[in-house]
Design a protein around this nucleic acid. Structure first.
Length: 637
RNA sequence: GCCCAUGUAGCUCAGUCGGUAGAGCACUUCCUUGGUAAGGAAGAGGUCACGGGUUCGAUUCCCGUCGUGGGCUCCA
């Protein structure tokens, strides 16, 4: 008994026998470009049979959803290739990620990059064979039994965690995998892919679990798009802050101090300019700067809880008298415990609050060796750190104040792509839930007031309070957390901080940890990648370089460089015995925003020939005009 | 810390199927005095990361350590 169903497909209504597969409803022309379909809003395979009236939208290969299907199917193709090449390898999971996909395997031996070409070649063979990809449904128990027989213990574990009674499997050729789908109709749809790397990854991301072997790859609808993507990645690598730092002479690293940058004079200028900028804001926003000890006796860390929770990440030491004895001091990894002593140095009243204490103190953290990464992950750093002690009722105003500061700073530095998140109460937490929810709402309100969109990061708060995190992506699309605004109910408790209320009774202040730039080190790293090294004028280590054309004008070049310096700008003169083209090239590579070329013509007229960074047209101008131009360069507000 | 890769001159990289090393750029000196992204020549510069092992002989092969890179984990 065949009944008819009414299908709206691509906006067109038509009828078809019930049970017709979606693929059969698509014209030949469109079929090649269609990888899946949306059936009444749900993404499904083209092989899905239509058994009721429905609305169908086709998902083309180059749509975001289509791309996801292609990448997911490519991950399967890779798993199939891997299992045929390396018998005894178990599959685990293979999700789609931002720029591609990965698949985690449990192989007899870890994969190396040398394995990738082989796997890729097999994938191409399998794609060329154009194997149909079929969806099967199987009762949960039968599937568990099936994968157990296949020796796929990880899959068994996965299915055991699936609540549904029926699970879906996908088969291509003789290969079969548990998967929710959807997938492309056949492996021939997969034409543009590349395996990009191998890595170790723990099963379920937990380091107590076995380490699996992960292979990363990417896939696109067409080879052209794949090529374009690979080129883009190449370009991104040229903006790597580590490369720029070397080229621009900003900082170096040396194995004598792993994870600890040496800022060279030019890098130190950027570093100090950022600090100066934040200092100016401190004046405006009512922060007071302090200078606090680097080393504290362990007693402090016991009280603060760092000994218990953070010792793994601390550098422990001792003093000269106790050499050979126990390690009874530690370098501070954070400023907060020290600041509680400044708070407690006086009897505080509600009239003192909010108390905003800022500190550019140097922090040291014994980060695990495998995590170090240029300036973005270091062991020695300074933060534009501050702690605010306030009453519970002042929290919202304080959060708001800091978010206004965030907007000032990020706006001044041209970051538009910041992403705000509110990390909420974790399972292990102190204080009652009502208080948490109330403060989470406060954070959200403050974000709203500042027009900042945000996402929730459920359960990701610290045990002692919720926080706002601001992330910014780097050149390679890795996200880095810069600003944080963290509420802390714990530290005031541990250090027994109090203030006297207007009623004369003692009360516990709330502590807010916050940093806008985060660490100066990381911020500079991200800023370099963000700008490609072309920093705003006020941050440029060298703002003007005078390029002399020949020895004859050496005196004049020297003179005007001195004059520009005298006006408060960072300038130098390149008087070397080199051709102009060479000097221009070097100034360009050093990313000096203004190049003032002087030859005999200019010396005669007391002028310069100005060239702007990145080849903007050079123009003759008087010295006064140049100074005026420099003065008109915007400073951060 | 774990997995994979990697470590040769200040930088970027060749090279040695085991007989102690090269290039370009940078550096020094000389020539050249020039008009907007590399003028020319000469010179100097390396315990081939470090420590063991195998070998007549190790920079090369093996093991370990350290560093670096890509991930995992953690976090600013």
């Amino acid at each position: 008994m065949s009944t008819e169903v009414v299908v709206t497909i691509g906006g067109e209504r038509r009828t078809a026998p019930s049970g017709t597969r979606i693929a059969e409803l698509i014209d030949g022309e469109r079929r090649r470009d269609t990888v899946a379909a949306r059936l009444d809003g749900q993404i499904v395979d083209l092989g899905r049979a239509v058994t009721a009236d429905a609305t169908i939208e086709l998902i083309s290969a180059n749509s975001p959803e289509g791309l996801e299907v292609i990448r997911h199917s490519t991950a399967h193709l890779m798993a199939q290739a891997v299992q045929s090449l390396f018998p005894g390898t178990q599959v685990t999971i293979g999700p789609v990620i931002e720029d591609g996909f990965y698949y985690d395997f449990a192989p007899p031996r870890p994969f190396t990059v040398d394995d990738l070409p082989k796997i890729e070649a097999r994938m191409r063979e399998l794609a060329k064979a154009n194997l149909p990809v079929e969806r099967l449904e199987e009762p949960r128990e039968a599937a568990i039994e099936r994968f157990r027989r296949m020796g796929e213990n990880y899959k068994v574990e996965i299915i055991e965690h699936i609540p549904e009674t029926v699970v879906s499997l996908y088969r291509q050729g003789d290969w079969i995998d548990l998967c929710r789908g959807p997938h492309v109709p056949s492996t021939g749809y997969l034409r543009a892919f590349k395996l990009t790397g191998v890595a170790g990854a723990y099963w379920r991301g937990d380091e107590h679990n076995p380490m699996l072997s992960r292979i990363y790859g990417t896939a696109f609808a067409t080879r052209e798009e794949l090529e374009e993507h690979l080129k883009l990645m190449e370009l991104a690598r040229s903006r790597d802050h580590r490369k720029l730092g070397r080229e621009m002479g900003l900082f170096i690293f040396d194995p004598v101090a792993p994870g600890s940058p040496f800022f060279l004079p030019r890098g130190a200028i950027i570093y100090n300019q950022l600090i100066e900028y934040v200092r100016r804001l401190y004046g405006r926003y009512g922060f007071e700067e302090v200078v606090t000890p680097q080393l504290y006796k362990n007693a402090l860390w016991h009280t603060s809880g760092h000994w218990e929770n953070f010792r793994e990440n601390m550098f422990l030491t001792t003093d000269g008298e106790n050499r050979g004895g126990e390690l009874d001091y530690a370098f501070k990894p954070m400023n907060c415990p020290g600041h509680t002593y400044i708070y407690a140095a006086e009897k505080r009243s509600y009239r003192d609050l909010p108390l905003r204490i800022a500190d550019f103190g140097r922090l040291h953290r014994a980060e695990r060796s495998g995590t170090l990464h240029g300036l973005t992950r270091v062991r020695a750093m300074s933060q534009d750190d501050a702690h605010i002690f306030c009453t519970a009722g002042q929290v919202e105003e304080e959060i708001d104040l800091n978010l206004r500061m965030v907007r000032d700073v990020y706006g001044a530095l041209g970051f538009e792509r910041m992403e705000a998140k509110v990390a909420t109460m974790p399972e292990k937490h102190m204080g009652d839930e009502a208080m948490w929810r109330e403060h989470e709402a406060t954070l959200g309100r403050a974000l709203d007031r500042n027009g900042l969109a945000y996402e929730l990061n459920p359960g990701e708060g610290a045990f002692y309070g919720p926080k706002i995190e601001i992330d910014v992506p780097d050149a390679l699309k890795r996200r880095w957390q810069l600003a944080t605004i963290q509420l802390d109910f714990n530290m005031p408790e541990r250090f027994d901080l109090t203030y006297t209320t207007s009623a004369g009774t003692p009360a516990r202040p709330v502590m807010i940890h916050r940093a806008i730039l985060g660490s100066l080190e990381r911020f500079i790293g991200v800023l370099l990648e963000h700008t490609g090294g072309v920093l705003p004028f006020w941050l440029a280590p060298e703002q003007v370089r005078v390029l002399s054309l020949s020895e004859k004008v050496e005196g004049y070049a020297r003179e005007i460089a001195a004059l520009i310096k005298d006006k408060g700008f960072r300038a130098s003169a390149d008087l070397r015995n080199e051709k102009l083209g060479f000097k221009v090239r070097e100034a360009e590579l050093a990313k000096v925003p203004y190049m003032a070329v002087v030859g005999e013509r200019e010396a005669e007229a007391r002028s310069v020939s100005l060239r702007m960074l990145r080849g903007a047209k050079n123009q003759a101008m008087s010295l006064d005009a140049l100074i005026e131009m420099l003065k008109s360069e915007p400073l951060p507000s």
